[in-house]
Design a protein around this nucleic acid. Structure first.
Lengths: 139, 139
DNA sequence: TCGGAAGTGTTGACGTGACAACGAGCGCGG
DNA sequence: CCGCGCTCGTTGTCACGTCAACACTTCCGA
């Protein structure tokens, strides 16, 4: 297997640098709200679901996380009062608490602002569409 | 602060999906060689430096890591025999071991192959150049 | 009805990463 | 010479994520 050419390496480096720059988004959300990126992910998914309730297995499917990861993380979030859990036939149910809803409401605008500053405003609309199209071909 | 528009959200989602897809690169390196992404980063930086030796502070500057992170990680890597450490006037020196060189030699082609399959070959040359240019504007 | 397979969730161990507190050496102005 | 600040590196603590092992249902066929 040949080593990467200069062009290939350069593209890879650019990717890494951009990833680094965009990691700022979750850094800012955390600094402003105390919610980590996984916290925000879980809360957002719950918020999006009707009633703020989801079966743990559904949450697992939506996020693509390992069951153990979700279990660990929900335990920590429940300890902080962001979600509550209940056993239901054949599984467990996760529910947004009032605190969880409030935290999500505080975090969402911070997140939107960070995404705009670091991603959206870095490119004019035409280039944003181009970038999105290219990104989708990587998946 | 307004919530993200559908276009903004869609771009952000595409970014996240692509990040996810490209995280496969380090997953494959780890599976094939037992080296984590940070392991590979440190070993590569040392390899690139003349003699495979760097002051810990230089390594810190090159990687952009916190000093504590580097310290923790080098301790673990030294325990596995990948690097050795020595105190020198005004700091510490990190050196590739024979095992470290061997591990790097095994990992590099695996890494190159993964980058090609997941990033390079997903796009024709013209689009690769376009993508790189867009990525650089995000930094 | 029994028994195993599939699905769901938990736990413990371990590597990883951020942050804060600490301590050693160095240099420079008083 | 003292003391102050600076860089350098280490340590402890805690949150996070993966893996393997385990436990509990549910369900389905022999």
């Amino acid at each position: 297997m040949q080593p990467l050419t200069a062009e290939e390496q350069s593209l890879w480096d650019a990717w890494r640098a951009a990833s680094d720059a965009l990691s700022q988004v979750s850094t800012e959300v955390t600094a402003a709200t105390g919610l980590s990126e996984p916290d925000f992910e879980v809360l957002t998914r719950l918020q999006e679901s009707a009633g703020g309730v989801l079966r743990q297995s559904e949450l697992c499917a939506i996020t693509g996380w390992h069951r153990s990861r979700l279990s660990h993380h929900l335990r920590r979030m429940a300890e902080r009062g962001l979600v509550s859990r209940a056993e239901v036939p054949g599984g467990a149910e996760v529910r947004l608490t009032t605190m969880g809803r409030a935290a999500t409401a505080r975090a969402r605008p911070v997140h939107a602002d960070a995404v705009r500053r670091h991603l959206v405003q870095a490119l004019p609309a035409r280039d944003r569409r181009r970038l999105e199209e290219l990104l989708r071909r990587l998946v």
